[in-house]
Design a protein around this nucleic acid. Structure first.
Length: 344
DNA sequence: AACACAAGCAACCGCCCACAG
DNA sequence: GCTGTGGGCGGTTGCTTGTGT
């Protein structure tokens, strides 16, 4: 059985708000607050609106100090970086951008940033793929020309490229270069029912080398290096706005559990959280043989529904794999770290 | 000028969660 | 512990405006 609707849809007005309605709502809330009850509020002030609609209107439009449109490059960067790290947690992202609402950010992402990044990602993907395909052809030619004496030429049965080996120091170096930080000291945190925000990702925010981010996101830069926003806790207070605090709730959190831990963590992250990373490499290698050399055969509708976006979610990880590839296949040397948020 | 299409944005929908009773 | 209710959130819809043909 579904729950009862919060209001009688037949008797409430829907659609765009009139200036009069706005004025009524604003005047009342300015004077009295919402009284802790949005559902009852419209009746009190004689608005034929759903309480939820009033709340939305207030939070997204009438609330003081709201800014609309005109997103700066810096704000774009923050949104993109947070999206890449935590996904579509618009309220969390909005909490880092004063004056912005989750709805605004969501719209901005859907209409502009997503396309912008997708376009960039596609370009890079195609460039990488072109490089790889030509390399594959080269490898194939060489393998066809070479037969170990006394053996059968098995080139046709082997993957064109060996599975990437995980070189440890190069990964660490690359992550550091990307702005990640290492800590081998503390146990790994993970989301819990109590602390769903207590994520642990293998990479700290890459802000540490970017001064512009430090200005606008000093909550991150001022936090201990082992803390990322993903270890933050969120708390809701009664002003109708969610507030997020950087608190180390479960004791110090680890970024990497040493290199062995990191390697396992990276693998786990990739396999459990993001099949699309594998798909990305699938596309990259032009074969179904993936990291472990086995065919995943995964190409589900769901995963594709995330589409290319997912390849954006962990550019650092992709970079790591590219570094791996570069390490294990030094012939492909034209790899360059891509700048995701730099000028196009 | 008229139409089609795309982009932007406000608002709605429905699910989930916290909390009071 | 259970249930009902309101608040919060992410996803989606549909209207408006802009642009191209």
């Amino acid at each position: 059985m579904g729950r009862a609707p919060c209001c009688d849809k037949a008797s409430v007005k829907r659609g765009p708000w009139s200036p009069e309605e706005d004025a009524k709502l604003k005047a009342y809330i300015d004077e009295n607050g919402n009284g802790g009850n949005w559902i009852a509020l419209p009746q009190k002030i004689g608005l034929k609106r759903c309480g939820k609609s009033c709340r939305l209107r207030w939070l997204n439009y009438l609330r003081p100090n709201i800014r609309h449109g005109g997103f700066s490059e810096e704000e774009d960067n923050i949104i993109c970086t947070l999206y890449i790290s935590i996904g579509s947690k618009w309220s969390i992202i909005a909490a880092q951008l004063p004056g912005r609402t989750d709805n605004d950010i969501k719209n901005h992402w859907n209409t502009k940033l997503k396309k912008k990044l997708l376009g960039k990602q596609r370009k890079e993907h195609h460039a990488r793929r072109a490089t790889c395909l030509s390399f594959n052809q080269e490898m194939k030619r060489e393998s066809e020309n070479y037969t170990v004496p006394g053996t059968v030429n098995q080139a046709a049965h082997w993957p064109l490229l060996p599975p990437p080996v995980m070189p440890q120091d190069p990964i660490k170096n690359l992550l550091v270069k990307l702005g990640g930080r290492f800590s081998d000291l503390h146990p790994q945190a993970s989301p819990t029912a109590k602390n769903p925000m207590n994520f642990q990702y293998p990479l700290d925010f890459p802000f540490s080398q970017d001064q512009p981010y430090e200005n606008s996101m000093n909550m991150f830069s001022s936090a201990p290096s082992s803390l990322s926003p993903l270890n933050s806790t969120c708390s809701k207070v009664t002003d109708g706005i969610t507030h997020f605090n950087v608190n180390d709730v479960d004791g110090p959190n680890d970024v990497f559990q040493g290199l062995d831990g990191f390697q396992a963590e990276l693998s786990e992250l990739i396999y459990s959280n993001n099949q699309q990373i594998l798909d990305e490499f699938d596309g990259f290698y032009g074969t179904d043989n993936m990291v472990d050399g086995t065919s995943t055969g995964t190409s589900s509708v769901e995963s594709r529904s995330w589409g290319d976006i997912n390849s954006l979610l962990y550019p650092q990880i992709l970079s790591v794999f590219e570094a791996c590839r570069q390490q294990s296949i030094p012939q492909v040397s034209n790899y360059e770290e891509s700048s995701y948020f730099g000028p196009q």
